[in-house]
Write a protein that binds this DNA or RNA. Structure first.
Length: 431
RNA sequence: GCGGUAUUGGUGAAGGGGUUAACACACCGGAUUGUGGUUCCGGCACGCGUGGGUUCGAUUCCCACAUACCGCCCCA
């Protein structure tokens, strides 16, 4: 094995790529219905685009960035997530201007990169499909984004979904809560896990998320952020909940839920799926929230935003685990069997004629015997075979056979070249 | 970045310091001349992840590295 793919990357081969195409197509169709348009931004950006937006102390920035200096000594980074690049593009192209309709709604899909230890559903190069909507503070827009996420996952055949909802409030809320949390946790400092000791002052919210059993016991009695919401934040959150109720979307409020990226505020949510494919318990497959202030952070005007990102690898694993059927878009209509060395050119012309007629066609290129070619046609589940040998070549005919019934008829080549579909319709009225 | 487990052909895998590395599936070929299933016959590991070491001799023992999977961290 001379070369192998870089650690944490994957080859998506035929057999699986159909699932990816199905996911992407389903997403595009659904996004169009919600009136989101596609935006394509670079796979790498200036390092600062991510470090400014994700938070200098976030794990993504401190240890997971694929950053490098290029030959012009520019400090670049492969995108670890989709939002920052979209916001940068939004600002750089002045899409906040009055000539664009608000909210400005876009979606993206593509590879993301994080330098971390690979596991199931976690790679160094992975893919996300996400949406962003800029320019409105309406809680109903948060809910539209959430509904879109739920809608997408259910269209893709996932069941056992759980929507977890929380709010981080506004600046004032966060500052007050942060202090309250520190005040609460400090008396327990010695009891905390080593990880949480570090987190306490760096990012106390993270302690809430600790997997350590003892940490969780302590945290169970911690104050809830919901008790520190400002009136505005409370109103926003209540309206989000009311709108979800109105749409009949179930959710669980999880006051301890936090985000890995620092730019979120107000509504945050995760859609989780329960499947052994991704280990024990629920795993997040789609997550997002509101990020008011991010546009300003990257040099734009004050302009709110809300969006989500979905992990395609995780999604595909879940779909495979739940055996979601993926439609086969290109069944084989006709396999052309050529017998003898002299038929190869005619065979080539025939497959081309059939393709021109709008059907799918294939043939043998290994000079194999008729029996082997029929075996192949059978295995490929061809609807018809079209057989031509020296005899037929001399007569300018070919034998068209319906594989399901075994019925075979002789057809003039001229008819095939003129209108293959008509030949099939005429000879096999039922099929 | 830390810890654990694993690494044999296209695939699933058995084996174990010593001539030809089971078995199954898949694939290819054949069973009288140009037709799909079944059956039968035959073929199919540059040699056991890579590089060192121990040994008369290693794929089998030891070390390092690589990769995968699991847990932690974190996250989609």
């Amino acid at each position: 094995m001379r070369y192998q793919r870089p650690k944490g990357t994957a080859d998506i081969l035929p057999g699986t790529s159909e699932t990816w195409q199905f996911v992407e197509q389903t997403a595009r169709d659904l996004f169009a219905r919600y009136r989101f348009d596609e935006i394509r931004t670079p796979m790498f950006e200036n390092f600062e685009v991510f470090s400014r937006t994700s938070g200098d102390t976030s794990d993504i920035v401190t240890k997971e960035m694929y950053d490098f200096k290029d030959k012009g000594d520019r400090h670049l980074s492969l995108r670890p997530e989709g939002t920052a690049g979209v916001v940068r593009a939004f600002v750089e192209n002045k899409l906040y201007g009055p000539e664009t309709q608000k909210p400005y709604k876009v979606y993206y899909m593509g590879p993301m990169f994080r330098y971390e230890r690979p596991q199931s559903g976690r790679q160094r190069e992975f893919h996300q499909i996400g949406v962003e909507a800029f320019g409105s503070n309406a809680p109903e827009l948060d809910v539209e984004v959430i509904a879109l996420g739920m809608n997408l996952l259910s269209k893709l055949g996932l069941k056992h979904l759980r929507l977890a909802l929380n709010t981080l409030g506004d600046q004032e809320t966060r500052a007050a809560y942060r202090q309250a949390l520190i005040d609460f946790l400090e008396p327990h400092f010695d009891e905390l896990s080593d990880d949480s000791k570090v987190r306490l002052h760096k990012n106390p919210l993270r302690v809430l998320d600790s997997k350590d059993a003892h940490d969780q016991e302590i945290v169970a009695n911690a104050p809830s952020i919901l008790d520190f919401l400002t009136p505005d934040a409370t109103t926003h959150f209540n309206q989000v909940k009311a709108s979800l109720d109105a749409l009949g979307i179930d959710y669980d409020v999880d006051a301890t839920m936090v985000r890995g990226l620092d730019y979120y505020n107000h509504t945050i949510f995760e859609i989780m799926a329960d499947s052994p494919a991704l280990g024990e318990g629920y795993t997040t497959v789609l997550a997002g929230g509101r990020y008011n202030g991010l546009v300003e952070e990257l040099g734009g005007p004050e302009m709110p935003g809300v969006g989500f990102g979905m992990g395609v690898e995780r999604l595909v694993l879940l779909m495979q685990a739940e055996q979601v059927p993926v439609p086969n878009d290109h069944p084989l209509d006709v396999y052309v069997v050529g017998i003898g060395d002299d038929t190869s050119i005619e065979t080539l012309k025939l497959v081309q004629a059939i393709r021109r007629a709008g059907l799918t066609a294939d043939r043998d290129y290994l000079g194999r015997k008729p029996k082997a070619q029929f075996k192949t046609a059978n295995r490929l589940d061809a609807h018809y075979t079209l057989t031509i040998g020296d005899q037929e070549l001399a007569n300018q005919t070919a034998n068209l056979k319906a594989m399901a019934t075994g019925e075979e008829v002789s057809v003039p080549l001229a008819d095939i070249y003129q209108d293959f579909q008509a030949v099939v319709a005429q000879k096999f009225t039922t099929k």
